[in-house]
C-alpha cells in the first residue's frame, strides 16, 4: 500500500536539554507529498522536534534522514560541509514568523532570492503584493504569516514545516491558511504542521499524529 516514500525519517532520536529528556528513542516517518499534522499537549516537545528537523537544535542520539539524504546519524550531523545542502530542502514558518523588521514585505523576500519576478510571483500568490512596501510592524498577524510563507516557499523546499500556524489567527483566517497549505501540498511539497487546534487539523491533514508522551520509547510509523 505504501507507494509514497518518506520525506523525513526519524530513527531512535533522543533529545535532552541538560539532564532533562524531551524525547527518547523516538521513531517516526513523514510521508512525502502529504500534510502531516502533529497534535499533542503543551510542553511535550513538538516544537523541539520540528527544530531538530530544521537544524536549529543539536540532538543527543539517533538518526534523521531528510529527502533520502542522511542528515544526522548517531546524534551527529553526518556531513558538516553539506549541512546547508540538506537543509535547503526544508522550510520553516515560525510561530511568531520572525520577519525582518527593518525590511519591507518585498525586501524580506528579495533578500533571500534576488529574483524580482519570483518575489512578485510568490507575493501575488499569497495575496500580499499590494502590501509589498509595508514594514512588518504595519501588518496584521495573518498578513505577516503570509509573508513568512512566501519567504519560505521562494526557496522551493521539498518540505515545509509550520509551528502553530493558527495561533495568531481568527477562525476565518484559519480556513484561509488551511486552503493555502493545501494548495502548497498539491504542488508536491510535503508539509508538517504542529498545532493544538483539532478543528484546523481535521480541515487540513492527510495524516494526524497524536503525541502523548515522548519521554519514553515512541514509535509511530
Amino acid at each position: 500500500m505504501d507507494t509514497l516514500s518518506n520525506i523525513v525519517e526519524i530513527n531512535n532520536l533522543t533529545k535532552k536539554f541538560g539532564e532533562k529528556i524531551i524525547f527518547k528513542e523516538l521513531s517516526i516517518n513523514f510521508k512525502e507529498k502529504e500534510i502531516t499534522v502533529i497534535l499533542g499537549p503543551s510542553g511535550i516537545g513538538k516544537t523541539t522536534l520540528l527544530r531538530c528537523i530544521c537544524g536549529l537544535e543539536t540532538v543527543s542520539d539517533g538518526e534523521i534522514t531528510i529527502n533520502n539524504q542522511p542528515y544526522i546519524k548517531f546524534g551527529e550531523v553526518v556531513d558538516k560541509k553539506n549541512t546547508q545542502k540538506v537543509l535547503n530542502d526544508v522550510g520553516l514558518v515560525f510561530q511568531d514568523f520572525n520577519l525582518f523588521p527593518h525590511l519591507t514585505v518585498y525586501e524580506n523576500i528579495r533578500i533571500i532570492v534576488k529574483d524580482d519576478k519570483l518575489v512578485k510571483y510568490w507575493l501575488t500568490e499569497l495575496g500580499m503584493f499590494e502590501k509589498k512596501d509595508l514594514y512588518p510592524f504595519e501588518l496584521s498577524g495573518g498578513q505577516k504569516q503570509r509573508v513568512a510563507i512566501a519567504r519560505a516557499l521562494i526557496l522551493k523546499p521539498k518540505l515545509l514545516c509550520f509551528d502553530e500556524p493558527t495561533s495568531n489567527l481568527d477562525s476565518s483566517l484559519k480556513m484561509n491558511i488551511a486552503s493555502i497549505i493545501k494548495k502548497i501540498s498539491k504542488t508536491g511539497t510535503s508539509v508538517i504542521i504542529i498545532t493544538h487546534d483539532e478543528l484546523f487539523a481535521d480541515a487540513v491533514a492527510d495524516n494526524i499524529i497524536k503525541f502523548t508522551d515522548l519521554s519514553t520509547n515512541v514509535s509511530c510509523r
Binding site: C54, G55, L56, Q84, L87, N88, V90, G91, L92, F94, D96, N98, L99, F100, I111, I112, R151, A152, L155
Partner: peptide, 23 residues
C-alpha cells in the same frame, strides 16, 4: 536581538556574514 532573527536567517540559508551585515 531576538534569536529568532538569527534562526530565520539560518533556516533561509543565509550565510553568517550576510546575516550579521544585512539582518
Amino acid at each position: 536581538i531576538d534569536k529568532g532573527q538569527f534562526e530565520a536567517a539560518f533556516v533561509l540559508g543565509m550565510k553568517k556574514r550576510d546575516t550579521y551585515k544585512k539582518i
